[in-house]
Nucleic acid binder design. Structure first.
Lengths: 236, 236
DNA sequence: CAAAGCCTGTAAGAATTCGTTAGATTCCTG
DNA sequence: CAGGAATCTAACGAATTCTTACAGGCTTTG
């Protein structure tokens, strides 16, 4: 974001609203204030704030419902600023999608710090991206076509079991995966000798990836601990 | 996310550590606990937690410095769990890169809710290739590939146990390492004859490094005290 | 419906890793 | 230099993992 982040403030009490706005402006943010949820929702058609500070005690709407809608439909960071002090309030607020929960009265410095912490992370992207193709170490795995394309362009079909294992690795790159985890992820239905089946799956995937059995480059074995997949991965 | 998120817990008090771990496991997370920052940093070379819960009052390191390092170098969400209640503590913690700050004593439900809120957002871009390579005395150790490259360019694979020992040395260069420390670092399972196992590990590593048994240049034995690794080390 | 082909778990033997054992060697003390 | 403790390493063996072969199940094909 090249520009100052835009912060929407939803707060029905004018005094607090003014304080929040001034504090944030002084800290280098742009602000836009609303006293009612309906106003705010109308404005949302035209503006896309980077973060929303919402007071739960609004006169014209249930604040939590609004938070939930914001969380699911907008990418903005949502910070509840509320006078309700119960733990349960915080928990439900956060679980409905709020990113933080600040109790009134609050210290301006903490509000700023928490807001900055939220804005440091990239905004949530739309859930629409499919991400069914991954490339790594010259290979490309297409999970729609169940195909594996080698660095030299040759395309090999990939079986379901192989795809499952590969997907598990691609979802956890550079991370140790224990056998227990594999069993959990791949839904190993409690077969007692399932460990052997796992070995065979790995072995077959390795050979399909052209790995040297003596010295595999991509799928490393950690004796007694599990496996680790080593590659930079790009999804598309 | 196809599998349970991995949460690292850095907390020196065993009671709290256990409570946190059990709470999180019950909520469907995988956890891994550490009592000291050094242990944690060593483990980070192998695991990639999705979030880190760190207590600021660690015995062996300044917690805030660790938070800052984590924030800049790892993509994990960072939540400080501290007994310090001052606003200023929270502000500096958050400004150094923490994503949230929870005050002890905390409600388990709130911890879970805040953790989930952090994990809902996609992780910051995973830090680009952090090559786990070190060079010393003409050798290069690649901890990703589990390979050891000799001064004349020959590449030898390195087993997990060997890599563990070598990494311990490379993390503590030119410093005496007692057997007790080795046991702690390498998670010795408390076997009575573990000392012998350690000897053998060292011996094997020495031979792989081409050390003259009569006069080792890199791994020196200090009779009755421990070992010391002598070399200039460059990480990359 | 039979035959062929592919997928995938099971079994079995080979290969690897790594702790244990034990005898040899080195080091310190007196 | 003797004696005991600490350390080294070769050899062994248990546990783990790899690969190949095989069989049952499912789908495709004639």
């Amino acid at each position: 974001m090249t520009d100052k982040p835009l912060i929407a403030i939803l707060e029905d009490e004018p005094g607090i609203r003014r304080i929040m706005s001034e504090t944030l402006e002084a800290a280098g943010f742009r602000t836009q204030c609303f006293a009612r949820a309906t106003e705010f929702e109308a404005a949302l058609r035209h503006i896309t704030p980077d973060a929303c500070l919402v007071d739960l005690g609004l006169p014209d709407r249930d604040g939590l419902a609004l938070v939930h809608r914001l969380a699911t439909e907008s990418g903005a960071a949502i910070i509840i600023v509320s006078g309700r002090t119960q733990v349960q309030d915080r928990v439900t607020g956060l679980e409905l999608g709020a990113d933080d929960y600040i109790i009134k009265p609050f210290e301006p410095a903490e509000l700023i710090a928490r807001l900055r912490a939220r804005l440091r992370r990239p905004p949530a992207q739309t859930r629409a991206d499919q991400r069914n193709r991954a490339s790594f170490a010259g290979w490309t795995a297409d999970f729609d076509q169940y195909a594996l394309i080698s660095p030299d362009g040759a395309e090999t079909p990939m079986s379901h079991a192989e795809a499952e294992v590969l997907r598990m690795f691609l979802d956890n790159p550079r991370r140790l995966i224990s056998r227990a985890q594999m069993l959990e992820i791949l839904g190993g239905a409690g077969g007692e000798s399932f460990d052997r089946a796992m070995d065979v799956r790995i072995s077959r995937l390795r050979s399909k990836l052209g790995e040297d059995p003596k010295n595999p480059q991509l799928i490393k074995t950690i004796y007694g601990a599990g496996y680790i997949f080593l590659a930079e991965i790009g999804w598309s």
